[in-house]
Design a protein around this nucleic acid. Structure first.
Lengths: 211, 211
DNA sequence: TCGACCCACATTGTTGAACAATCATTGCGA
DNA sequence: TCGCAATGATTGTTCAACAATGTGGGTCGA
């Protein structure tokens, strides 16, 4: 199996919650379980470590990342910088606006159905489409990594409903603001969104005695 | 040798211009030359590929990245987004302002001495310190990768003087604006800087028949 | 009982060799 | 000249081994 494919497969498994945040990933046993050699697995680990999905400590192996409070704060700081900046410069005519609307509707349908994993995915899709407004592959890549890390924080908290349900209407507000009141208003809405979302995550962390 | 150390060493060599942008990096010969095994080298390659410093094509190995015109445009787009956004929210009292001043003086001394590599390094140091105003490790990491890629573009152009000399006074203007006229004015100055710098790089690329 | 030290064990870091898979080139024939 | 198959080189992957490092347990002494 190609190492990139392997890294992608591992990434998907981690994001799906197959491995708990903080869980130690033994090279020997995981290699056996995935039916690849240790060397191949190690190459995949390097990729994931660069993505921030696993943490690599020399001579002590890799574990699934488990974002600390400081990490969460930093992730949201970076998100604010990137997402708000992009939105402020965005055009409501960009094709990606349609994608944002699709994801929003998917999230709203998910709320109706009470399917919180769908809501979570759609909310993230909304913000991914938002970043695509920038037409910058590098910003999209960076943002994608931020979302992947953040998803680990969500996994540690595990309460998808309270983490995602309240934010569907906020995403609606962001999109409406972009279309009706212009990019600056949308950026302001988004900043509120992110501040509130960060507050929720940090609150849950505090209740858990951190992540 | 630890793989991270190896990746760092390779990164330094690439950035120093030891390998030309676009040059093919043979696993066997490079492993022999660096006195490491192929497997270890491959792990380091994965790290560098994630940094955008080398390009990895399946079954065709890795080459030193050689940014295309589109890459340069994207790098500057991302820089504008990140650096200007940070500067707009920055405080002139942040400790990193002192670092910016140091790098600026180093650059000015370099201009006096006609030492363009020093000027180039100091200019980049200035912008690195600028991003450090954000106190965000993730933004710093992303920005560092952008600079590394950009350095490859500079290497392809090779005319350090015209790429870096004009921008020392512009950096001075950014710093002065931050201290004297506030973050918004500084962000405006910086936007001019980046636009002009991008124009220069693209112009040189055009003269070379692209990179 | 408690703490310091030492040793065996487990895991990672790295190597070298081997083989399959894929790509590039060369030379042949039509 | 063009297409094509054989050939050689390089990458992808595996395996086995050993060195280096970290971990935990157990002994010994106070």
């Amino acid at each position: 199996m190609s190492d990139t494919t392997l890294a992608d497969a591992l990434r998907a498994r981690i994001i799906a919650g197959e491995f708990a945040p903080g869980e130690r990933l033994s090279e020997t046993s995981l290699a056996a379980r995935l039916d690849v050699s240790r060397n191949t697995l190690r190459e995949a680990f390097r990729v994931l470590a660069q993505h921030g999905l696993v943490e690599h400590v020399p001579n002590r192996g890799v574990s699934v990342a488990s974002p600390t409070t400081a990490d969460v704060v930093d992730i949201y700081r970076a998100r604010r910088q990137i997402e708000c900046g992009i939105l402020r410069d965005a055009s409501a005519l960009h094709p990606s606006v349609a994608v944002m609307r699709e994801e929003l509707e998917r999230a709203e349908a998910g709320v109706e159905a009470g399917d919180w994993p769908v809501v979570a995915a759609a909310n993230m899709g909304f913000h991914r489409a938002l970043v695509a407004l920038s037409d910058s592959p590098r910003l999209e890549r960076t943002h994608e990594q931020l979302l992947a890390e953040l998803r680990l924080a969500f996994l540690a908290i595990a309460d998808f409903e309270s983490l995602h349900r309240p934010f569907v209407t906020r995403n609606r507000a962001v999109l409406d603001a972009l279309v009706d009141r212009g990019p600056q208003a949308a950026a302001d809405e988004l900043e509120d969104y992110l501040t509130e979302s960060e507050r929720r995550v940090l609150g849950a962390y505090a209740r858990l005695g951190r992540g």
